[in-house]
């Protein structure tokens, strides 16, 4: 249905495991939108998680699935798929039963810090580019519609052979 929705895709080969995306996400989704205030006064929570294993890492966040497991499991209808393809949770309706947390096979839905609500990636509706993608220094996160992404460097053009 929504095969062409834009998602945040991680590119493992580019990820250095610096976790700037986590910081950016936590700041963007705090009430302060300021790094100092977020980490000293707020309840920082990042919806993306960087997985690190030795020299390998990538950033993991919500897939905004076509048929989301979390939406199926939501007993109140708080978790739902918007017409534009984003999967978001209405916090006013959420009762914190955590059925979505246990259903998400990617582990991308989690309890909200300091509240009995679910929290997940909302693809930063206030921004043109999600905060995590913008913060990534090494283009290890891309915001695109492509289903199967291959990150390729532009091929060098062959120099024409000139006789003479």
């Amino acid at each position: 249905m929504n095969h062409r929705i834009k998602r945040v895709y991680p590119i493992e080969e580019n990820c250095m495991g610096c976790r700037l995306c986590e910081v950016a996400c936590a700041i963007e989704h705090s009430e302060f939108k300021d790094p100092i205030m977020t980490f000293f006064n707020g309840k920082p929570q990042s919806f993306t998680t960087v997985e690190v294993d030795r020299n390998f890492s990538f950033s993991l966040n919500c897939r905004h699935c076509d048929e989301p497991y979390c939406v199926e499991a939501c007993i109140t209808g708080a978790m739902h798929k918007e017409p534009d393809g984003r999967v978001i949770v209405y916090e006013d309706i959420c009762v914190g039963c955590y059925m979505c947390v246990v259903s998400c096979p990617w582990g991308a839905v989690n309890p909200k810090e300091g509240a009995k609500k679910a929290a997940k990636c909302d693809l930063c509706p206030d921004r043109e580019l999600p905060a995590c993608v913008q913060a990534c220094p090494n283009r290890a996160l891309v915001f695109d519609t492509t289903e199967e992404l291959v990150f390729e460097l532009p091929e060098e053009e062959e120099e024409p052979f000139v006789e003479g």
Binding site: H3, E51, F58, L149
Partner: peptide, 19 residues
């Protein structure tokens, strides 16, 4: 974490949006 999962399984995460 996902880091312990096989590479091919992680590709499932990065490549698809289906079940």
């Amino acid at each position: 974490g996902w880091a312990v999962f096989p590479y091919s399984y992680r590709k499932l995460f990065t490549g698809y949006s289906a079940r």
